[in-house]
Design a protein around this nucleic acid. Structure first.
Lengths: 109, 109
DNA sequence: ATTCTATCCATAGATAGTCTATAGATGGGA
DNA sequence: TCCCATCTATAGACTATCTATGGATAGAAT
């Protein structure tokens, strides 16, 4: 069976921000989205997710408000702010550069 | 100026092991190799490098012996062991899967 | 009615890995 | 002789993740 590789440290904020470009979502929904989009490969645990959302709130990259879900439950919906969108762009480009750099090392050795 | 993105956490061991497939090297040489191969993008600080080498030694993935460098200086040369080579293969495939999974999330949102 | 399951939020504590900062030794060149 | 580059190494702080909980509620099942 195919192991269980959790997450690549440092990429969670980026994944959350990216997920929120599709529109506001609550924490549980974000976790599900990441899991489904990655085809069950990436699993975001609560203990990682909520601290991350707190960080993003403090930085002003997302905002939050309590609403009702489609299933009539009370949940906190997170929305990407303009600063958050900008931050996402930054993180995406750094990530790509990083991956490219690692690729060069792995390829030449 | 273009920021300073250090390293992607969790990838250092893999980079070291891969570097050693070219042959035994001392710590300082490993750091230089990674830096040059990545075209000055990745910088491995001593405070990251030596703890990592200690980890690899303990796991049996590298072995070490004191020798003289080309410049006639005393240095500790690290060599990849068969287990280390196997471990490298494992880490490479996990890393690629991880990157692919992240790529799927980033692409679809 | 009651229990169960899925949904939903959140925190505490442990652990891992990296960074900053520091320390020291040595060979070769100015 | 003095300095710089080479070379090893550790301590302490910090960040981010994981494990493990805890709790609440809606709707379905029994």
């Amino acid at each position: 069976m195919p192991k269980k590789p959790d997450l690549l440290p440092g990429t969670l904020d980026m994944l959350i921000l990216k997920t929120l470009t599709r529109g506001p979502q609550h924490g549980y929904g974000i976790a599900l989205s990441i899991r489904h989009l990655s085809q069950d490969f990436l699993t975001v645990e609560e203990g990682s997710l909520y601290p991350a959302l707190q960080r993003l709130l403090v930085q002003g990259w997302v905002k939050a408000e309590w609403k009702k879900t489609e299933t009539n439950r009370r949940a906190r919906f997170y929305t990407l702010t303009p600063q958050g969108r900008k931050q996402l762009g930054l993180e995406l480009s750094e990530f790509e550069q990083m991956i490219a750099a690692i690729g060069r090392v792995l390829q030449k050795a």
